[in-house]
Amino acid sequence: MTAPRTILYARVSTTDQNLVHQRVQAEAAGFRIDEVVADHGVSGVSTALADRPEGKRLYDKLRRGDTLVVRWVDRLGRNYQDVTDAIRHFMRQGVIVRTVINGLTFDGATTDPMQEAVRDALIAFMAATAQAQAEASKEAQKAGIAAAKADSRKYLGKKPSYDRDGLRRVQEMLAIGAGTSEIARATGLTRQTVLRVKADPAGAETALERWGRE
């Protein structure tokens, strides 16, 4: 019998992003990666996991007892239906799905209906957040392009103190009702920064796009 494996699925959608960074993050978080399956230059919005050159290999490679590691659920996709379908498929196959960011674990081991309900609600929330962030990022990109065209100096504004993962964490904590001070302590950002993100989430996305922060 083959020993369980830990497979990292990595995806980048643009040429300036780095696949290696996702493995480094996973190993720094304590994961021992046996194999990396990666898609480069593939959109998580328009291309389902099963339709990607390497993503579809996961459906053949993963076996009961294996662990699928992703930096966050948006690596699987940025479409609500696709992400939820993929995670539930792997759980039915006996595969454990784990995220590097936030240390989430999804598996099909529990038979308790309340635990199943909580797990499924969390999967749905994470998938919905991934799609919402993709849509907000697209709108922010449009706004950034329009602003750059309107300003011949292409003024970037103040460089944001957060990166993509930091902004996502703030948005997640805001979504569950965490207070400003609590979020600031958890993320290392100032209360003023958290309040600005809360007041203008689209503006926060635009700032990241303008500065090209991943």
Rank of each mutant, 00 (worst) to 15 (best):
R164F: 12
A50I: 13
V118H: 02
G166Y: 14
Q171F: 06
G144Y: 04
R88K: 01
A175D: 08
A136Y: 01
R75V: 03
D163M: 02
K61S: 10
G166H: 12
E172L: 15
P113E: 00
R78C: 10
L76F: 07
G144N: 10
V100N: 01
L62A: 01
A147W: 10
T105I: 12
L49M: 10
I96A: 04
L49R: 05
V100H: 04
R64K: 11
V95C: 02
D60M: 13
R88D: 05
V100C: 10
T47H: 10
D163C: 02
K159W: 10
I96H: 00
L49Q: 08
D112C: 09
K138R: 15
P113D: 00
R92F: 04
S43V: 06
F125D: 09
P113F: 01
R78I: 07
A132C: 05
Y155M: 15
A148T: 11
L174T: 01
A150C: 13
K142M: 13
Q81T: 08
A50E: 14
R57E: 12
K159E: 15
Q115L: 08
M126A: 13
T67D: 00
D74C: 04
R98S: 11
M91F: 03
D66Q: 04
S46K: 15
R63N: 06
D165E: 15
A147C: 09
D74F: 05
A86G: 02
F125T: 11
M173F: 14
A175T: 05
D120P: 07
Q133F: 03
T67F: 00
D82Q: 10
A147G: 15
R169A: 10
K56F: 03
G65Y: 03
R119W: 07
V73Y: 00
R98W: 04
Y155H: 15
S152F: 12
